[in-house]
Amino acid sequence: MKKKILIFLQSGVGGAERISVLIGKNLNPDVFDVCFCCVGKGENQIAKFIPTGYVVYRIPYSNPVLLILHFFTTIMRVQPDVIFSSVFNINTKLLLLSIFFPSKKFVIRSDNNVEVFSSKQKMLIKFLYKKARTIVAQTQEMKDGLVALGKINEQKIIVLPNPVDEKEINRKLQNAISPYSNHSSIIFVATGRFARAKGFDILVPAFAKVQKDVTNAELYIVGKNDGTATEYFVTIKSMIESLSLSSKIHCVGFQENPYPYIKYADCFVLSSRYEGLPNVLLEAMYLKRPVAAAKCIPIISRLVKDGENGFTAETEDVDSLAEAMKKAVLLKNIQNNYKSATTSDFEKIML
Protein backbone atom coordinates (compact mmCIF):
# COMPACT_ATOMS: atom_id res chain seq x y z
CA MET A 1 0.00 0.00 0.00
CA LYS A 2 1.27 3.48 -0.87
CA LYS A 3 2.32 5.93 1.83
CA LYS A 4 0.04 8.95 1.84
CA ILE A 5 1.95 12.22 2.18
CA LEU A 6 0.19 15.49 3.04
CA ILE A 7 2.36 18.54 2.37
CA PHE A 8 1.31 21.84 3.99
CA LEU A 9 2.66 25.01 2.40
CA GLN A 10 1.84 28.69 2.14
CA SER A 11 -0.01 29.92 -0.93
CA GLY A 12 2.71 32.41 -1.90
CA VAL A 13 5.73 31.60 -4.06
CA GLY A 14 8.72 31.71 -1.75
CA GLY A 15 11.73 29.44 -1.69
CA ALA A 16 10.29 27.15 0.99
CA GLU A 17 7.08 26.72 -0.98
CA ARG A 18 8.84 25.86 -4.22
CA ILE A 19 11.12 23.38 -2.46
CA SER A 20 8.09 21.72 -0.84
CA VAL A 21 6.45 21.30 -4.24
CA LEU A 22 9.70 20.01 -5.75
CA ILE A 23 10.09 17.40 -3.01
CA GLY A 24 6.47 16.28 -3.32
CA LYS A 25 6.29 16.00 -7.09
CA ASN A 26 9.56 14.05 -7.27
CA LEU A 27 8.56 11.33 -4.79
CA ASN A 28 8.05 7.97 -6.51
CA PRO A 29 4.34 7.74 -7.44
CA ASP A 30 4.49 3.95 -7.15
CA VAL A 31 5.42 4.27 -3.49
CA PHE A 32 3.89 7.56 -2.36
CA ASP A 33 0.45 9.15 -2.75
CA VAL A 34 1.15 12.89 -2.42
CA CYS A 35 -1.35 15.69 -1.87
CA PHE A 36 -0.87 19.36 -1.00
CA CYS A 37 -2.64 21.79 1.31
CA CYS A 38 -2.10 25.49 0.50
CA VAL A 39 -2.57 27.97 3.33
CA GLY A 40 -3.20 31.68 2.89
CA LYS A 41 -5.55 34.37 1.68
CA GLY A 42 -5.68 35.85 -1.79
CA GLU A 43 -4.48 34.15 -4.95
CA ASN A 44 -3.12 30.64 -4.53
CA GLN A 45 0.06 31.39 -6.49
CA ILE A 46 1.95 28.24 -5.52
CA ALA A 47 -0.80 26.10 -7.06
CA LYS A 48 0.55 27.10 -10.47
CA PHE A 49 3.74 25.20 -9.65
CA ILE A 50 1.93 21.99 -8.64
CA PRO A 51 1.57 19.65 -11.62
CA THR A 52 -1.90 18.52 -12.67
CA GLY A 53 -3.02 15.24 -11.18
CA TYR A 54 -2.27 16.09 -7.56
CA VAL A 55 -5.06 16.72 -5.05
CA VAL A 56 -4.74 20.27 -3.70
CA TYR A 57 -6.64 21.38 -0.60
CA ARG A 58 -6.99 25.03 0.34
CA ILE A 59 -7.21 26.68 3.75
CA PRO A 60 -7.85 30.43 3.68
CA TYR A 61 -6.00 32.61 6.16
CA SER A 62 -7.62 32.92 9.60
CA ASN A 63 -6.57 33.63 13.17
CA PRO A 64 -4.08 31.14 14.67
CA VAL A 65 -6.66 29.20 16.70
CA LEU A 66 -8.96 28.69 13.72
CA LEU A 67 -5.97 27.82 11.56
CA ILE A 68 -4.99 25.04 13.95
CA LEU A 69 -8.58 23.79 13.83
CA HIS A 70 -8.47 23.80 10.01
CA PHE A 71 -5.23 21.84 10.12
CA PHE A 72 -6.80 19.29 12.47
CA THR A 73 -9.88 18.78 10.29
CA THR A 74 -7.73 18.50 7.14
CA ILE A 75 -5.57 15.80 8.71
CA MET A 76 -8.67 13.95 9.88
CA ARG A 77 -10.13 14.17 6.38
CA VAL A 78 -7.01 13.08 4.48
CA GLN A 79 -5.65 10.56 7.01
CA PRO A 80 -2.03 10.82 5.79
CA ASP A 81 0.79 8.61 6.99
CA VAL A 82 3.27 11.48 6.81
CA ILE A 83 2.68 15.20 7.38
CA PHE A 84 5.36 17.52 5.95
CA SER A 85 5.87 21.27 6.09
CA SER A 86 8.70 23.74 5.48
CA VAL A 87 7.65 27.03 7.09
CA PHE A 88 8.02 27.98 10.75
CA ASN A 89 4.47 29.31 11.20
CA ILE A 90 3.00 26.10 9.81
CA ASN A 91 5.57 23.80 11.43
CA THR A 92 4.73 24.96 14.95
CA LYS A 93 0.97 24.70 14.52
CA LEU A 94 1.19 21.21 13.07
CA LEU A 95 3.51 20.07 15.85
CA LEU A 96 1.02 21.35 18.41
CA LEU A 97 -1.41 18.84 16.89
CA SER A 98 1.04 15.95 16.90
CA ILE A 99 -0.20 14.81 20.31
CA PHE A 100 -3.56 13.96 18.71
CA PHE A 101 -1.95 11.88 15.97
CA PRO A 102 0.69 9.69 17.64
CA SER A 103 0.72 7.16 14.79
CA LYS A 104 1.46 9.75 12.11
CA LYS A 105 4.93 10.86 11.13
CA PHE A 106 5.51 14.62 11.36
CA VAL A 107 8.44 15.73 9.21
CA ILE A 108 9.40 19.41 9.20
CA ARG A 109 12.01 21.33 7.29
CA SER A 110 13.60 24.30 9.02
CA ASP A 111 13.36 27.41 6.86
CA ASN A 112 15.99 29.55 8.60
CA ASN A 113 18.91 29.63 10.97
CA VAL A 114 17.84 30.00 14.59
CA GLU A 115 19.58 33.36 15.12
CA VAL A 116 17.08 35.16 12.86
CA PHE A 117 14.07 34.09 14.91
CA SER A 118 12.53 36.29 17.62
CA SER A 119 12.66 35.34 21.31
CA LYS A 120 9.06 34.12 21.12
CA GLN A 121 9.80 32.02 18.03
CA LYS A 122 12.85 30.51 19.70
CA MET A 123 10.70 29.47 22.67
CA LEU A 124 8.30 27.73 20.29
CA ILE A 125 11.20 25.95 18.60
CA LYS A 126 12.53 24.77 21.99
CA PHE A 127 9.11 23.48 23.03
CA LEU A 128 7.73 22.09 19.78
CA TYR A 129 10.44 21.06 17.31
CA LYS A 130 11.47 18.04 19.40
CA LYS A 131 7.95 16.66 18.79
CA ALA A 132 8.77 16.13 15.09
CA ARG A 133 9.79 12.63 14.02
CA THR A 134 12.36 14.07 11.61
CA ILE A 135 13.71 17.60 11.05
CA VAL A 136 15.40 18.57 7.79
CA ALA A 137 18.11 21.21 8.12
CA GLN A 138 19.45 22.86 4.98
CA THR A 139 23.00 23.28 6.31
CA GLN A 140 25.18 21.88 9.10
CA GLU A 141 25.10 25.29 10.80
CA MET A 142 21.29 25.19 10.80
CA LYS A 143 21.39 21.74 12.45
CA ASP A 144 23.92 22.87 15.04
CA GLY A 145 21.75 25.86 15.91
CA LEU A 146 18.64 23.73 16.40
CA VAL A 147 20.51 21.23 18.59
CA ALA A 148 21.97 24.00 20.75
CA LEU A 149 18.71 25.93 21.08
CA GLY A 150 16.16 23.16 21.46
CA LYS A 151 18.27 20.40 23.02
CA ILE A 152 16.97 18.26 20.17
CA ASN A 153 18.38 14.79 19.62
CA GLU A 154 20.95 15.10 16.84
CA GLN A 155 19.82 11.81 15.33
CA LYS A 156 16.43 13.21 14.30
CA ILE A 157 17.93 16.18 12.43
CA ILE A 158 19.12 15.36 8.91
CA VAL A 159 21.13 17.82 6.80
CA LEU A 160 19.81 17.86 3.23
CA PRO A 161 20.92 20.74 0.97
CA ASN A 162 18.11 22.13 -1.16
CA PRO A 163 17.52 20.36 -4.46
CA VAL A 164 17.49 22.39 -7.67
CA ASP A 165 14.51 21.81 -9.96
CA GLU A 166 16.60 21.31 -13.08
CA LYS A 167 13.75 19.86 -15.15
CA GLU A 168 11.47 22.80 -14.41
CA ILE A 169 14.19 25.36 -15.09
CA ASN A 170 15.05 23.70 -18.40
CA ARG A 171 11.37 23.49 -19.36
CA LYS A 172 10.81 27.17 -18.66
CA LEU A 173 13.88 28.12 -20.67
CA GLN A 174 13.03 25.93 -23.66
CA ASN A 175 11.79 28.75 -25.90
CA ALA A 176 13.01 31.64 -23.80
CA ILE A 177 14.45 34.82 -25.22
CA SER A 178 16.28 37.58 -23.42
CA PRO A 179 13.94 39.92 -21.52
CA TYR A 180 16.52 42.69 -21.82
CA SER A 181 15.97 45.11 -24.68
CA ASN A 182 19.32 46.89 -24.52
CA HIS A 183 21.82 44.25 -25.60
CA SER A 184 24.77 46.61 -25.19
CA SER A 185 24.17 46.95 -21.45
CA ILE A 186 25.87 45.01 -18.67
CA ILE A 187 23.02 43.42 -16.76
CA PHE A 188 22.95 42.69 -13.05
CA VAL A 189 19.93 40.84 -11.68
CA ALA A 190 18.60 40.16 -8.18
CA THR A 191 15.48 38.17 -7.32
CA GLY A 192 13.32 37.95 -4.22
CA ARG A 193 10.34 39.57 -2.58
CA PHE A 194 10.74 43.16 -1.42
CA ALA A 195 11.62 42.63 2.24
CA ARG A 196 14.38 44.01 4.45
CA ALA A 197 15.91 40.53 4.70
CA LYS A 198 16.77 40.68 0.99
CA GLY A 199 18.96 43.76 1.45
CA PHE A 200 17.81 45.72 -1.60
CA ASP A 201 18.53 48.91 0.39
CA ILE A 202 22.17 47.73 0.32
CA LEU A 203 22.05 46.61 -3.31
CA VAL A 204 20.80 49.93 -4.71
CA PRO A 205 23.64 52.14 -3.36
CA ALA A 206 26.12 49.37 -4.22
CA PHE A 207 24.88 49.44 -7.80
CA ALA A 208 25.20 53.25 -7.79
CA LYS A 209 28.91 52.80 -7.08
CA VAL A 210 29.22 50.12 -9.77
CA GLN A 211 27.46 52.32 -12.32
CA LYS A 212 30.01 55.09 -11.89
CA ASP A 213 32.70 52.73 -13.22
CA VAL A 214 30.51 50.58 -15.50
CA THR A 215 28.41 53.30 -17.10
CA ASN A 216 26.41 50.91 -19.29
CA ALA A 217 25.35 48.80 -16.31
CA GLU A 218 21.68 48.17 -15.52
CA LEU A 219 20.08 46.41 -12.55
CA TYR A 220 16.87 44.37 -12.66
CA ILE A 221 15.11 43.37 -9.44
CA VAL A 222 12.63 40.52 -9.94
CA GLY A 223 10.19 39.86 -7.11
CA LYS A 224 6.91 40.59 -5.39
CA ASN A 225 6.55 44.28 -4.67
CA ASP A 226 2.89 44.61 -3.71
CA GLY A 227 0.77 43.56 -0.74
CA THR A 228 2.95 43.02 2.33
CA ALA A 229 5.99 44.04 0.27
CA THR A 230 4.60 47.49 -0.60
CA GLU A 231 6.13 49.54 2.24
CA TYR A 232 9.68 48.32 1.61
CA PHE A 233 9.18 48.66 -2.15
CA VAL A 234 8.20 52.31 -1.73
CA THR A 235 11.36 52.85 0.33
CA ILE A 236 13.53 51.29 -2.36
CA LYS A 237 11.84 53.25 -5.16
CA SER A 238 12.47 56.49 -3.25
CA MET A 239 16.11 55.50 -2.86
CA ILE A 240 16.41 54.80 -6.58
CA GLU A 241 14.90 58.17 -7.44
CA SER A 242 17.10 60.03 -4.98
CA LEU A 243 20.16 58.51 -6.66
CA SER A 244 18.83 59.47 -10.13
CA LEU A 245 18.90 55.81 -11.21
CA SER A 246 15.31 55.34 -12.37
CA SER A 247 16.49 54.69 -15.93
CA LYS A 248 19.11 52.18 -14.75
CA ILE A 249 17.30 50.15 -12.07
CA HIS A 250 14.18 48.26 -13.11
CA CYS A 251 11.77 46.66 -10.62
CA VAL A 252 9.80 44.23 -12.74
CA GLY A 253 7.64 42.62 -10.02
CA PHE A 254 6.82 38.97 -9.50
CA GLN A 255 7.50 36.79 -12.54
CA GLU A 256 6.11 33.26 -12.86
CA ASN A 257 9.16 32.50 -14.98
CA PRO A 258 12.17 34.39 -13.59
CA TYR A 259 14.73 32.14 -15.26
CA PRO A 260 15.24 34.14 -18.48
CA TYR A 261 16.15 37.13 -16.30
CA ILE A 262 18.86 35.05 -14.64
CA LYS A 263 20.08 33.17 -17.72
CA TYR A 264 20.58 36.30 -19.85
CA ALA A 265 22.09 38.46 -17.09
CA ASP A 266 25.82 39.10 -16.84
CA CYS A 267 25.87 38.75 -13.06
CA PHE A 268 23.49 37.52 -10.36
CA VAL A 269 23.56 39.44 -7.06
CA LEU A 270 22.55 38.19 -3.60
CA SER A 271 22.45 41.11 -1.19
CA SER A 272 20.55 39.41 1.65
CA ARG A 273 20.99 40.13 5.34
CA TYR A 274 20.08 36.53 6.10
CA GLU A 275 18.86 33.40 4.33
CA GLY A 276 18.17 29.75 5.06
CA LEU A 277 19.84 28.41 1.93
CA PRO A 278 19.08 30.78 -0.98
CA ASN A 279 17.47 28.84 -3.83
CA VAL A 280 17.94 31.73 -6.25
CA LEU A 281 21.70 31.58 -5.75
CA LEU A 282 21.70 27.83 -6.42
CA GLU A 283 19.61 28.37 -9.56
CA ALA A 284 21.93 31.10 -10.82
CA MET A 285 24.89 28.78 -10.30
CA TYR A 286 23.06 25.99 -12.15
CA LEU A 287 22.61 28.44 -15.04
CA LYS A 288 26.36 29.18 -14.87
CA ARG A 289 25.97 32.85 -14.05
CA PRO A 290 28.76 34.62 -12.14
CA VAL A 291 27.51 35.65 -8.71
CA ALA A 292 28.21 38.44 -6.27
CA ALA A 293 26.95 37.27 -2.89
CA ALA A 294 26.84 38.67 0.61
CA LYS A 295 28.20 36.20 3.17
CA CYS A 296 24.93 36.30 5.11
CA ILE A 297 25.28 32.64 6.18
CA PRO A 298 28.46 30.54 6.43
CA ILE A 299 27.66 28.23 3.52
CA ILE A 300 27.89 31.16 1.06
CA SER A 301 31.69 31.11 1.43
CA ARG A 302 31.69 27.40 0.63
CA LEU A 303 29.46 27.80 -2.42
CA VAL A 304 31.03 30.92 -3.91
CA LYS A 305 34.75 30.67 -4.56
CA ASP A 306 36.27 34.09 -5.19
CA GLY A 307 37.57 34.31 -8.74
CA GLU A 308 36.10 30.94 -9.81
CA ASN A 309 32.31 31.27 -9.84
CA GLY A 310 31.90 34.72 -8.36
CA PHE A 311 32.96 36.94 -5.48
CA THR A 312 31.70 37.26 -1.93
CA ALA A 313 31.00 40.43 0.02
CA GLU A 314 30.63 41.30 3.67
CA THR A 315 27.00 41.36 4.81
CA GLU A 316 25.36 44.81 4.92
CA ASP A 317 28.46 46.41 3.41
CA VAL A 318 27.72 48.61 0.40
CA ASP A 319 31.36 49.08 -0.66
CA SER A 320 32.16 45.37 -0.34
CA LEU A 321 29.12 44.37 -2.41
CA ALA A 322 29.95 46.93 -5.09
CA GLU A 323 33.49 45.55 -5.40
CA ALA A 324 32.18 41.97 -5.62
CA MET A 325 29.74 43.00 -8.36
CA LYS A 326 32.43 44.74 -10.41
CA LYS A 327 34.77 41.75 -10.20
CA ALA A 328 32.14 39.02 -10.66
CA VAL A 329 30.76 40.48 -13.88
CA LEU A 330 34.14 39.98 -15.53
CA LEU A 331 34.03 36.20 -15.06
CA LYS A 332 31.46 35.45 -17.78
CA ASN A 333 30.31 31.78 -17.67
CA ILE A 334 31.25 29.73 -14.62
CA GLN A 335 31.15 26.07 -13.61
CA ASN A 336 28.49 24.91 -11.16
CA ASN A 337 29.98 23.16 -8.12
CA TYR A 338 26.83 22.74 -6.02
CA LYS A 339 25.82 19.23 -4.92
CA SER A 340 22.19 19.07 -3.86
CA ALA A 341 20.24 16.43 -1.99
CA THR A 342 18.64 13.77 -4.18
CA THR A 343 15.08 12.52 -4.47
CA SER A 344 16.08 9.29 -2.75
CA ASP A 345 17.36 11.31 0.23
CA PHE A 346 13.88 12.75 0.75
CA GLU A 347 12.15 9.44 0.07
CA LYS A 348 14.10 7.84 2.92
CA ILE A 349 12.78 10.32 5.47
CA MET A 350 9.19 9.86 4.28
CA LEU A 351 9.21 6.06 4.60
Rank of each mutant, 00 (worst) to 15 (best):
K4T: 14
I5S: 00
V13P: 00
G14C: 05
G14M: 03
A16E: 00
R18A: 04
V21S: 03
L22R: 03
G24Y: 00
P29H: 09
F36P: 00
F36Y: 14
C37K: 06
C38I: 06
V39K: 01
Q45E: 13
Q45I: 13
P51M: 09
G53S: 11
Y54Q: 03
Y57E: 00
R58H: 15
I59S: 03
S62T: 15
L66Y: 11
L67Y: 01
I68L: 15
L69E: 06
H70P: 01
T74N: 01
T74D: 00
I75W: 08
F84M: 04
F88K: 04
T92E: 06
K93S: 11
L95D: 01
L96P: 01
I99F: 09
K104Q: 15
K104R: 15
F106V: 02
S110M: 13
F117C: 04
F127Q: 13
V136A: 03
Q138N: 13
E141L: 02
E141V: 03
M142N: 13
K143C: 08
G145K: 05
L149R: 05
G150E: 05
I157S: 05
I157Y: 04
I158E: 07
V159F: 07
V159A: 05
L160R: 13
P163R: 03
V164L: 05
E168L: 12
K172V: 02
Q174P: 02
S178Q: 13
S178E: 05
P179V: 01
N182K: 15
I187W: 12
G192S: 08
G192W: 06
R193T: 02
A195N: 10
A197C: 07
D201S: 11
L203K: 00
P205S: 09
A206S: 15
V210E: 12
V210D: 13
Q211K: 14
E218M: 08
Y220I: 09
Y220C: 12
G223H: 12
T230S: 14
E231Y: 08
E231S: 11
F233E: 09
F233R: 04
V234D: 11
M239Y: 02
S242Y: 08
L243Y: 14
L243K: 10
S244W: 06
S247T: 12
C251N: 11
V252W: 10
G253W: 10
N257F: 06
P260E: 10
Y261Q: 04
A265H: 00
A265Y: 00
S271E: 01
R273D: 09
R273V: 11
E275H: 06
G276V: 00
V280F: 06
V280E: 01
L281M: 15
L281G: 00
L282T: 01
Y286P: 08
K288H: 14
P290G: 10
V291F: 04
V291N: 01
A293G: 10
A294L: 05
P298K: 07
S301T: 13
S301R: 08
S301Q: 13
R302D: 15
G310L: 11
G310S: 12
A313L: 09
T315I: 03
T315M: 07
T315E: 06
E316F: 12
V318H: 01
S320A: 13
E323N: 11
M325P: 07
K326I: 07
K326D: 08
K327S: 07
L330V: 09
L331W: 08
I334W: 11
I334E: 07
Q335P: 00
N337A: 02
K339Y: 13
K339I: 15
D345M: 02
F346D: 02
